[in-house]
């Protein structure tokens, strides 16, 4: 891990605005980046989460654009932006589903790993390192930001930035842990203690409840169209549920 830290590009404080991911957190994920694509590595939980959240997004995409549920390229002709893309766990599926994909991450090494992996997978994805607000990107049909907002220091500004990148008639998807006693016990203390997620991944105090996130989105001009819990069961593993105590995922669009 120590040599991975060395290769992290110094993140200039000038590019870190008050709405950004904290520098210490960006460095933390950069160090983990090489392991991101190992399904049994430190991001095993994210890999297992991937089919669950992709299933939710697929359903939402079919509903939002009234698409063919059998199609294997439901995002053909659409643009997608994944904010906090890590090593591309969501960007690559979006690209296979036909979207023109842009991935943004604050950690330079994540973007390096994501680019290398996309080239190995023979997928053309536009990866950008830096602060979303500084990159001068346009608007996108699909904007996703998964397991990121809990790491953000100033959430209203961050949400406003996301909304600025959402095209009229576009679809936004967010997921994040809830701030409950259960999530504190299981996600922060339990999961980190047994090594399911790397130590230092989560700061429980920064977690945001569904009500708080709803208020933020409403203030930014969006309405929530669907919200589900992501729960864990010994037999089912991670699955969509009505129980939002641990983690939840939602779709939103501009208020009509």
């Amino acid at each position: 891990m120590s040599d991975a830290t060395v290769s992290v590009e110094p993140v200039s404080p000038a590019t870190i605005g008050p709405a950004t991911i904290r520098p210490d957190e960006a460095a933390h994920f950069g160090a983990l980046a090489r392991e991101w694509w190992d399904p049994k590595g430190s991001s095993a939980m994210l890999h297992r989460l991937n089919p669950v959240r992709l299933g939710f997004i697929r359903h939402a995409v079919d509903l939002h654009w009234a698409g063919d549920i059998e199609s294997v390229r439901p995002l053909a002709g659409k643009s997608a932006l994944d904010v906090g893309c890590g090593a591309g766990l969501l960007c690559e599926p979006f690209s296979r589903l036909g979207a023109e994909v842009t991935g943004v991450d604050a950690a330079a090494e994540n973007i390096a790993v994501a680019s290398a992996h996309a080239s190995g997978s023979e997928l053309a994805i536009d990866y950008r390192h830096g602060e979303l607000g500084d990159l001068g990107l346009g608007q996108f049909d699909l904007v996703t930001c998964m397991e990121v907002i809990e790491h953000v220091a100033e959430k209203p500004r961050f949400v406003a930035q996301l909304v600025r990148h959402l095209a009229p008639g576009g679809l936004m998807t967010l997921s994040t842990p809830n701030r409950t006693a259960a999530s504190r016990l299981l996600l922060v203390e339990g999961a980190e203690a047994v090594g399911l997620v790397p130590k230092g991944t989560h700061h429980w105090d920064d977690f945001i409840t569904p009500d708080e996130l709803s208020d933020l989105l409403h203030a930014a001009g969006l309405e929530i169209t669907e919200m589900r819990g992501i729960a864990f069961g010994p037999l089912k593993g991670l699955h969509l549920s009505d129980d939002m105590a641990l983690n939840y995922i939602l779709t939103a669009r501009r208020r009509q």
Binding site: N50, I69, V72, P93, R96, L97
Partner: peptide, 12 residues
């Protein structure tokens, strides 16, 4: 998996 954009060799 293909409906979700996952390739056939995906570990999940």
């Amino acid at each position: 998996g293909m409906r979700l954009g996952l390739e056939p060799g995906d570990a999940q």
